[in-house]
Write a protein that binds this DNA or RNA. Structure first.
Lengths: 212, 212, 212, 212
DNA sequence: AATGAATGAGGATTCATTCAT
DNA sequence: GATGAATGAATCCTCATTCAT
């Protein structure tokens, strides 16, 4: 009996496809759509270049699937958040921390998004799964804001969408600009200490703003 | 001994170089370093491709000069800001608005920065003019924070660097993600109305946070 | 010791092979040897690509079998012609008409032949069934010419081979160049009317020439 | 003084383009559109592959230009024909011989035409120079037919277009099928003797048909 | 006999860069 | 300083063919 059980045929193909996607996320995140190399992706995936085309059709379609994948992944983690029985302020702090930490753990999300924005969302615009991109986090923000306002601990004029964008921005920007900020301020902002400090600050900002 | 006087290059050569830089900013902003085409830059500049190499040496060196140029441009406008005789809250609001509006007016700044971050600031890291990148805005933030704290209208625990980063993030993120946000929320966030609303919100967030 | 009796292959296998051949005729006729796609042939045949290799060995061998097949098919129809009891002139007219109509009904014959000529008959040259390619039509022409000459209704100096080639040429060329002729003369030469007119003309030419 | 005078710049580019076209005619004639290799064309032309794209844009556009070129070349030679002061029969014989000889001297014309027909004249169909393809030979045929009829040496019912097609077919088919005919009849039809015999026969056929 | 996955060589096309004038 | 032509290395993609069930 051995562990290296031969995968059933379709499973094996599925695995190849998954490895290619994984490698593509990496390559695209590091080099962008134009800078990424199809050969490199295949090589890193330990797959034949042809398979990339069998499974994804073209570099651009692969790009789209990568985008959809990282979006879906973040949405999934957001969906798993449960702040329903936390005090509004603690709940909001949790959301802020989650976002910052997720972004720091997944810098590829930031890079890919930025690239797609450079392309004016041309690819996402054609996605049929675009609706799946809608953020559960926005709903959570909305709900927590309402609870906080009702409880009198939050100001009543905070708009959910703006607040959501701000919340996301606080984490996203820091990660997105880690390198240039570090260069300009000659600091290692990616250290856990720096990240922790940033996290505390972001919570302060949002809760400070929301004070009634 | 001779002073290394700047040679009075022919006006025409200077103009050609300027046109190439201009075209490069555009091309790089729209397509990134890898996606940009040297032919296109030369064509748009109405210059011979060879001139690009005469003036800039290589595509990568041109990229670096573009980065330095857009950074310098923003710093220049920041330096022109004068909030010294404004009330701290009005001064801070002014800084927030300035940053958002500048970013909105210069989306290329955002795109280029994001690209450079993807490259882990490899090019800026080698820049000898990096010190010129240091932000006057940060000094302004520091000074206004101090004035506000002294006057008792701002909290005393706001760190200048964190506050500066937050201030910049609020504008930058919005512009950087205009397209994907628009796609996801099916809205035209680039309208003046939307931008105005965002501006008001950002001011609210920062001033709300800074309340003692 | 066993006789190498032809194994009664499964009916199913036989059918698969036939479908592949059919699909190959089409694909080769439309795209030529180099332009034809093995994947497409298999797909059109509703067969697995592997089967193509099992039954035919390679794309080139398949090409040869296709050639032999279409040649054999024409020869078969020629063999079925019976003009023995027709008056020489009517017999010759019949041969002309047959050839033109057959060619029009089987444009793939023309295309495949042309391709093979481009290849300088490299594949047919290696065929072991080449003798099967000898044309019964030539024998018919020879015989009718002889009868006509004997009867005094045909000139006596018409050489059978040249006459055969001319007869074939009259139909073949028209079909072979249908598209470019149509383009150049801006006419729809593939209509039944046009084909009928051409048929009448060809008969006129050959019988006119054969007048004593 | 040396003969290898350096060509003025644009002349040199022109020469490169011409060499590429020349090489392309050869490669396309021998291998067809799909079978031709761009690398091979460039190599044979002694040119860099890139130049092919600079001058022609793509393989398909090069194919079109090749077609237009060979057509134009034949039309030019046809235009140079002068049979106005020959006796109708001699004039017609001259046209037949010219066509057969031209075709034999330019087998690439036949191959290319056949290929384009296989593609259903897709490329010529998009040509803007299609009108240039109209055949002066057709006009000559028309004129000679009229003169012959008027002089009472030709039948009066010969249609010019049909007669033209027949005339062209007689030569074209022979050249087009030289290889398969040789294979089937085990003869060397490309010898001068065979060609001469074919020429005599073709003249006989046409003049025989045209007898009143 | 049949299948789906995989392969590696090769194909058209594009790129940043340099040469010759 | 400026130009048009040229270059060779890559880049994306495709193909006929084979492997492992």
């Amino acid at each position: 009996m051995t562990d290296t059980v031969e995968l059933p045929r379709s499973k094996r193909a599925e695995a190849t496809k998954a490895r290619i996607l994984e490698a593509a996320i990496n390559e695209f995140a590091n080099h962008g759509l134009a800078g990424a190399r199809v050969d490199e992706i295949a090589a890193r995936a330990g797959a034949n270049k042809r398979m990339l085309y069998v499974h994804f059709g073209s570099k651009e379609e692969l790009w789209l699937q990568v985008l959809e994948h990282v979006y879906a992944h973040k949405r999934e983690e957001e969906r798993a958040l449960d702040v329903g029985n936390l005090h509004p302020q603690e709940a909001m702090a949790r959301l802020v921390r989650f976002n910052l930490r997720y972004t720091a753990r997944h810098p590829e999300f930031v890079t890919l998004l930025n690239q797609e924005n450079m392309h004016q969302a041309r690819y996402l615009g054609t996605s049929e799964r675009v609706q799946a991109l809608y953020s559960p986090l926005l709903d959570l923000v909305r709900e927590v804001l309402a609870r906080g306002a009702a409880a009198g601990v939050f100001r009543r004029d905070a708009e959910p969408l703006q607040t959501y964008v701000t919340l996301v921005a606080l984490g996203h920007f820091y990660v997105a600009n880690l390198h240039t900020l570090s260069a300009v301020f000659q600091a290692r902002l990616s250290s856990e200490a720096a990240l922790g400090a940033r996290e505390a600050h972001c919570v302060e900002v949002l809760l400070g703003y929301l004070r009634p």
